[in-house]
Simulated scan of single mutants.
Amino acid sequence: MSDALDSLPARPLRQREVTALNHADAFTLVVPVDREEAVEAETREPVVVTERLILGTDDWVKGLVYDGGWVVVESVAVDDPDEERFEAMRDCEAAVADYEA
């Protein structure tokens, strides 16, 4: 994985972390494919997490699934983000949806 992907925590992302990634310079888009309610282990507080993401930069879009660690299930190079990003996102979303642990 790239350095930016290596910085993801070794667990599903909390909703606030997805939001923070959307504001980070490393990615131009971060889209959770699914969300589920969970309980924070330390505090027992309810949280919303995602184990399936679409990440994008101006150069690529990747579909990731958390399966004991973040796994890139699809990666699409993008030459023209304005023209190609949407289709790349659809391809990655389909790969994420089809992934079975």
Rank of each mutant, 00 (worst) to 15 (best):
M1E: 02
D3G: 00
A4S: 01
L5G: 01
D6K: 02
S7I: 04
L8A: 02
L8W: 05
P9S: 07
A10Q: 14
A10D: 14
R11E: 03
R11P: 00
P12G: 06
L13R: 00
Q15M: 05
R16S: 15
E17N: 04
V18A: 09
A20P: 02
L21Q: 07
N22A: 03
N22C: 08
N22S: 12
H23V: 13
H23F: 12
D25E: 14
A26G: 00
A26L: 10
A26S: 15
F27W: 05
F27G: 02
V31I: 08
V31K: 13
V31F: 06
V31H: 12
V31Y: 10
P32I: 05
P32A: 12
P32L: 07
D34C: 10
R35Y: 10
R35W: 13
E37K: 15
A38M: 04
A38F: 08
A38P: 09
A38E: 08
V39W: 08
E40Q: 00
E40G: 01
A41F: 06
T43C: 04
T43S: 08
R44P: 01
R44T: 13
E45H: 08
P46E: 02
P46L: 02
P46F: 03
P46C: 03
P46S: 01
V47Q: 14
V47G: 07
V49N: 13
V49F: 07
V49C: 12
T50P: 04
E51P: 11
E51N: 14
R52W: 06
R52A: 14
R52Q: 13
L53A: 03
L53K: 00
G56C: 05
T57W: 08
T57D: 04
T57N: 09
T57I: 00
D58T: 06
W60L: 05
W60H: 11
W60R: 07
W60C: 03
V61W: 01
K62E: 13
K62C: 06
K62F: 04
L64S: 01
V65Y: 00
D67K: 14
D67P: 11
D67S: 15
G68P: 06
G68W: 11
G69T: 13
G69W: 10
G69Q: 14
G69N: 14
W70E: 02
V72P: 06
V73Q: 10
V73S: 12
S75E: 13
V76W: 06
D79Q: 11
D79K: 08
D79N: 11
D80H: 07
P81I: 04
E83A: 15
E84N: 10
E84D: 15
E87A: 15
A88L: 02
A88F: 03
M89R: 04
R90V: 14
D91C: 10
D91H: 07
E93I: 09
E93W: 06
E93Y: 07
A94Y: 05
A94N: 05
V96S: 00
A97I: 09
E100M: 13
E100S: 15
A101C: 12
